[in-house]
Amino acid sequence: MLEARQLECTRGDRCLFTDLSFKLGRGQMLRVAGANGSGKTSLLRIMCGLVSPSAGELRWQGRPIRDEREEYSRNLVFIGHLNALKDDLTALENLQCAAALSGKPADVGRMLAALERFGVAHCAELPAKVLSQGQRRRVALARLALAPAAPLWILDEPFSALDVGAVVELELLLAAHLASDGMVVLTTHQEVQVVAHAILRVDLDLHTAALRAA
């Protein structure tokens, strides 16, 4: 279980949000909403442990994440704004490196199947630099199909640059992950149709509004 306690994030002089608390349990999805610049990406990066909050803390299974960074990272898949693809490597090599670095090396068959799920198996041997934006996003998302074992998925705008077919595929994947007791945190501007027994929502606009009023 992931628990946030009174998180606060400041960027430069600006306080993005303060006193943000929530609990995310098994099979639950957390959707982070808010206007541009309200700190959605900052919150996600805090939740990954890339950034430390200016106040408050995050706990994973009851223990602060900064105390066992590596252990926490192994339970986590993060897909950020950037696709984390090397232009000079092929889609398959990119996937292979990502899987190996996250400590779960995969064989070629499984990787091809993951690419196939997102309809980019035919690009497997192409270097990432010749792929389109949408195709690159699909290759990045294929990591999810490869790593169902990691319980926590943190996704920053996963639906951007995707066409309808890929959106549906991703929604199915998210639903399956939640059904098998996984957890998902995501930001998105579009409505998501994911079948889950609990979808939490954090609205950062409200938290900054509260701050201004105070």
Partner: peptide, 14 residues
């Protein structure tokens, strides 16, 4: 620039 460094920080290895 391409975000792979971010992934290395989250690699679960020291």
């Amino acid at each position: 620039q391409d975000g792979t460094l971010e992934q290395m920080l989250l690699a679960g290895e020291p």
